[in-house]
Nucleic acid binder design. Sequence first.
RNA 1: GGGCGAAUAGCUCAGCUGGUUCAGAGCGCCUGCCUUACACGCAGGAUGUCGGGGGUUCGAAUCCCUCUUCGCCCACCA
Length: 893
Amino acid sequence: MTQPLAPQYDPGNIEAELYRWWQDQRIFEATGQGQARFVIMMPPPNVTANLHMGHGLNNTIQDVLVRFERMRGKDTLWLPGTDHAGIATQNVVERLLAKEGKTRFDLGREAFVALVWDYVRKTGATILEQLKAIGASCDWSRTYFTLDEDLSRAVREVFVQLYDKGLIYRGHYLINWCPRCLTALSNEEAEKEEVDGHLWYLRYPLADGSGHVTVATTRPETMLGDTAVAVHPHDERYTGLIGRMIDLPLTDRQIPIVGDGGIDPAFGTGAVKVTPAHDPLDFEIGRRHKLESIDIFTPDAHISETAPVAYQGLDRFEARRRVVQAFKELGLLEKIETHRHAVGHCYRCETVVEPRLSDQWFVRMEPLARPALAAYRTGKLRFIPERRGDEYAQWMENIRDWCISRQLWWGHRIPVWYCENASCAHVAASRTDLTTCPRCGGPAHRDEDVLDTWFSSWLVPFSSLGWPEETADLRTYYPGNTLVTAPEILFFWVARMVMSGLEFMGEIPFDTVYLHGTVRDTEHRKMSKSLGNGIDPLEVIRLYGADALRYTVVAGTAVGTDLILDPADLENSFAAGRNFANKLWNAGRFILGNLDGPTRPLAGKYAEVVRKDELALADRWIIARCDSTVAAATEAYERYRFNDAASAVYHFIWSDLADWYIEQIKPRLYGDVPGGDVARAVAAATFDTALRLLHPIMPFVTESLWKRLPARAQGESISKAPWPRPDRRADDPAALADFGLVQELVGGIRSIRADYGIQPGQSIRAVVSGVGRVAGPAFEAERSTIMRLARLSALEMVEASSETGATVVLSDGTAVLVPLGEAIDLDKECERLRGEYARFQQLIAGQIGKLANQQFVSRAPADVVERERRKLTDWQEQADVLRSKLERLGCLQ
RNA sequence: GGGCGAAUAGCUCAGCUGGUUCAGAGCGCCUGCCUUACACGCAGGAUGUCGGGGGUUCGAAUCCCUCUUCGCCCACCA
């Protein structure tokens, strides 16, 4: 073997080198070979992003899945990519420009886009490089960028196909507008947030001077664009007013009172000011009553020239103050109430979104949603956790058309040309760039807008594989299997991928959607840059290693729960993972360091080199434990219960293998007793299995150790080692029970030692009584183990003992006693035994009550009753043993 | 406003089909140990009205109702 292993695991020295080795071996690349495939599409991080814990969580889970399936022999493809992230990226570069005092308009479109490309080329690979640090086993040879030429072709193909089918249309509608980003947003991109606002009651004088109507509004400034007042047609308070005119204050306009069924008479005053250009409901009312729309805002939400001069140029919130003030001065402000309501905010910059009337492109979603909903209803598409499926269904059922045009420069430009010939005015969507109108040959110009970022990412499951070309990858790797993502982008991305997959490929792009939680701090606030409560995964990796990070993430994430970490205490958050990696390292160091000596060919399977009748009790026990860990871990991985998988393997390695088995085999390995060759074979085999089971979660340390096991071929990687299978021959309930008693016995004696403060160096004598039935042979078989681990000078085993001393009763009724003497004090032992005895008395009393209950005995299943009866007799036996001890010691007076 | 989830040890959380994994794990805490793999360790310990109340059941952390608190998703009552 190579150099000796350091006593402390040092991930920093090992991880980068191993990752390079994996890449050199091309282990992560999909081969196109083999029977079964496993495909995961990575949610493409924004090209400008830096790795944060959200990525850490998301990609760790994907990597666990991919590595698990790769070891099960599947041809795995985990396809990485980056998203051009229209608004976000444009914002970043615009901010850089702003530092030089420039705007994108100073550069012009072409130069600006070139600048963004420069920026993206320079920084775009950062996040993918960072993913390598956590061990992500992506197929980097297939990495894509959503603005790549082939993905752009797919975007255009999709646009044209949908346009030709009438599923894409252009229209003049009220959309969500971000006055800071200066672009339209989809409904999903306008995040509703509850805010404490006000409800202002404004008096609108009737034109004939006969009084006024009071309207209630949350946005008084928009009254400058009012073109009507609406009341419910059956509202008795107002029926007489419908059709009459209002003198709109602060303006020189008169507006009508209309009756509209959409008004709720119970809210506010039952009379509503109508601003068709700035409110969705008002927009509808305006359409129904053919009202004028007056857009009183500029694109950046200042008052425009359509409003009275006094207000022009004011910011919308300043305008609000001025309007309210003016109403107050005119005596037209009736009252102000506080009012909590939901207000849309831009998901990129959190600016309050302005409903704005404009020409935009939309996708008609209902026809796409219908099959996507059916895929869920029929069970083809499933969600983990299941309840997320309801959210998906609810969204699909209430689907609204998707506004896909953005007034940005960075992105896929809309492939639509407008004929400038007024008599033709043809609008053409085209797969190729046009200069002239395809219908009349006249001059044509292209639409200025770009597409929503999500219009390219919703195609990724097939566009990243070459669609619309019929590539080999597309045939092989579509549809995929599992999608792993955060619930935040269920609608942005996941739901839309299902729709596009069905529409363009005729099949859903994946059958399972695993939605993990959110990373939060101990106050349960989402980790974010602005709150400054984030944890930098690279910092964690530097301090504790990628495996520690991954273990913590996996162990802390039960299905459907958030991951809570303490940014103020990384040590506390990640110590368990680091400690476990170190424990594994040292267990490996010990096993590997003791494989020399009398030995047999050590392959992966003990069964090939060891006969069953050669196995000691401890060997049979660890083999059985190992096997049941294989079953438990495999099932947990299959059920996405990665935290269960982690704890099953953790417990096996730490508690079973390290604490007991390794301790048990030391004399054999050192040649003090025979059987070293068997111990070596069993230790190597079970350790090998444990490494495999853990590899998806902690790939680095497991690979590093596994490579060093004997009989490894050059270049052989645990990443492609076959997944362990449960082996019925390993079933051994007797070994589990017998060795369990040995553990209990050792534990009992250790407990007495601790209670009596017996020095670790002091050997003591122990007497086990009642060994006639079950435990005797087991204790005899492991006599030397018991003596060593409990530090005994002598271990006597008798049917019954007349000696007195400190006693512990084991679960099978045998008792172990450390005789009275220099170490053991009578009074203290009496006290101990009395406490124990009382505890059993209580248990027994309860159990007798239970069994005396006719209802229980008659109604509970027979096996349950039987089990409870046995429990009672066991306890009674243990209590009897205690009682006789008490009597013998004279503790009962 | 509609829908959904969560509440278990000081902290972060498991506990799936009601009963032998039933009150658990890790971290933290206490005691003793540098025992030739590991002090990032070993051994031994302490800690709980399973959020409150009611119900179903022979039996409830687990099922039902209700209240409280905290989250999430959806929503054009201005």
